[in-house]
């Protein structure tokens, strides 16, 4: 038989940092023993169905999220809660820490999916139509009555509520018009998304809440992974980590650069009272049904890893 083909399906576009990192770093690094065949823009499997596709042997790799894993394993909702990870480095520490082992093992045993590495998606920030002069956001109370577009699932909507806003779901492709016409007052995304989707043309401020340091996991079929000899497994793991690191540094640099760009476009960019937001959001999450599914002491251990 020839080299195994590793088919990956992802809703990310080809120019997304994650895609670029996998194409430029991951694919060449494993080229000697496997062919990486990515399918972007969710052309192969719909967003959110990749894990079951891997599980049923219909797909080899995916870029999955904590939200998607939480559908099967509610404890993963801890990583979709606000203000859990401090920054990109914290994510890596948590992922490589022994505290993740039971969770990784459960995903392997129950779904046959192996989580290879953690990818940095960016810090989600508030992006509002009103200028700072019209609406200065210091604490969650300032967001009262602000209609905030958030992705459609419960966990996202809860995060929006925890921030103090009025969350509402809307398809990503409709956000621009929604912001322009005032159907929504704001949206939240990492800065690179704000720029790629040109939301800065129809909004006047960025409030740097950094309420979610968002992550993805690069995932592979356990069966496919286990079939590889040990040296190739090691090479594949290294390639994953290298690609993730490459993407992470690019994304971090981009986030830094874009603050200047957005200011240049006339947007107000400022930090709110982060502590007020963190306390409010964490308090709401801890008393929610989500926290009930988190392993005991997990949040404390995660907090302890934040340097």
């Amino acid at each position: 038989a020839g080299k195994p083909v590793l088919r990956l399906s992802s809703p990310a576009s080809e120019t997304d940092q994650r895609a670029v990192a996998l194409i430029e770093k991951f694919a060449p690094a494993i080229a000697s023993f496997a062919t990486f065949e990515p399918h972007w823009n969710a052309t192969l499997f719909k967003q959110g169905t990749e894990l079951e596709a891997i599980s049923r042997g219909n797909l080899d790799m995916a870029i999955t999220s904590a939200q998607e894993l939480a559908v099967f394993f509610p404890e993963f909702s801890i990583f979709s809660a606000g203000y859990v990870h401090k920054d990109a480095a914290h994510q890596v520490k948590v992922f490589n820490d022994p505290l993740m082992e039971p969770m990784k093992k459960k995903v392997e045993d129950d779904l046959g999916v192996k989580l290879l590495t953690v990818m940095y998606l960016g810090r989600r920030q508030l992006n509002l139509r009103k200028s700072k002069a019209e609406l200065t956001v210091k604490t969650p109370a300032d967001l009262k009555g602000v209609t905030l577009r958030m992705p459609g699932t419960d966990a996202w909507q809860f995060l929006g509520k925890a921030l103090g806003a009025n969350p509402t779901p809307m398809a990503f492709t409709e956000i621009y018009t929604g912001l322009q016409t005032g159907a929504v007052d704001g949206q939240d995304n990492p800065l690179p998304t704000v720029v790629d989707a040109k939301f800065y043309e129809v909004t006047k401020q960025i409030c740097l809440t950094s309420h979610l340091v968002d992550l993805n996991y690069l995932a592979i079929s356990k069966k496919v992974f286990d079939a590889l000899p040990a040296d190739q497994q090691a090479a594949l793991l290294k390639a994953s980590n290298d690609a993730a690191e490459f993407g992470r540094q690019n994304q971090l640099k981009k986030e830094d650069d874009l603050i200047a760009f957005l200011k240049d476009k006339g947007l107000d960019v400022y930090e709110p009272d982060i502590k007020a937001f963190r306390d409010h959001v964490q308090k709401l999450f801890l008393s929610s049904e989500y926290a009930a599914s988190w392993p005991k002491g997990m949040l404390d251990k995660i907090n302890a890893l934040a340097s």
Partner: peptide, 14 residues
């Protein structure tokens, strides 16, 4: 049916 039955472990979003 194998696929559909497998999804008993997946709950709808809301």
């Amino acid at each position: 049916w194998g696929w559909i039955d497998f999804l008993k472990i997946k709950k709808s979003a809301t």
